[in-house]
Design a protein around this nucleic acid. Structure first.
Lengths: 137, 137
DNA sequence: TTACGTGCAAAACTTTTGCATGGAC
DNA sequence: GTCCATGCAAAAGTTTTGCACGTAA
């Protein structure tokens, strides 16, 4: 039994063609971060007959099942990435649109400290740096 | 000449009724963070005849002029707040929807350090903590 | 007077939903 | 066979735009 099938079964989801193909799209893709539209277009270009509504439904289920993470960066469309388990934040090159992942134990620690100081516990968080390449000189 | 007029003039914007009223709505509001819809509803309740499209147009101009800041928190609608100049990040109580502002020099410093290490400079950034009140015991 | 601003309605865009059919187990 | 999943089209929700009219400077 292949990896995708296992992943779907584990999530208690029926193993259907759209779900398999969407998982594969993520695995094949160069970029880790894709919009629903990106995925839909790639399916179309492989002559797949899968509706955009299905893409959204599948992504929503995948998110609930912890298979993907959804991010609301600037610019209307939500982006999704496979949830590989290791938490990280994002840096977006505003010139090229490239997404860089990073992780700082130190920032994580400070966030918890701040929330705690205000009487809260962190449920989730979102840190995005919008960056531009340093000028060389 | 009052404060609102001064602010609009400084931004090179004509002093019109909708622009004045929208500035005032921000100043009167208990919450610092309002959606376009929030503002529109408050105008309606004051019997103002200002269209929602105008609210969006004015907010967009205000953002370009540095009068307000726009945030894309989770949940579809963008929120706007007056730009008082002092940078801060946000903590959102997911139970009540309450928005708490905070600021950490330490986190700011680490962000720059990380961007720099990757060969970038930070153009802008967004840090939002989604939190829940600590359980008492 | 003239360029810019506004209200209204329609359009654009992303995402969700209703419904009849199809497919996994 | 049963229940969940899907495609399609339509709806919903937010934001933008076209256009004719209005108004600040």
């Amino acid at each position: 039994m292949d990896q995708e099938t296992k992943e779907l079964r584990k999530a208690g989801l029926k193993v259907t063609h759209p779900r398999m193909r969407i998982l594969q799209i993520f695995e094949e893709a160069e970029e880790r971060h894709l919009t629903a539209e990106d995925i839909y277009k790639r399916l179309l270009s492989h002559q797949e007959d899968i509706g955009l509504a299905t893409v959204y439904r599948v992504l929503t289920q995948f998110e609930a099942a912890g298979i993907v993470m959804k991010h609301n960066f600037e610019g209307g469309q939500a982006v999704y990435e496979l949830d590989r388990g290791k938490h990280h934040d994002h840096m977006i090159d505003v010139d090229s649109g490239k997404v860089i992942e990073f992780m700082s134990e130190e920032i994580e620690r400070l966030q918890h400290e701040i929330a705690d100081r205000h009487g809260y516990v962190i449920e989730d968080h979102s840190l995005v740096l919008y960056v531009r390449p340093k000028k060389k000189r």
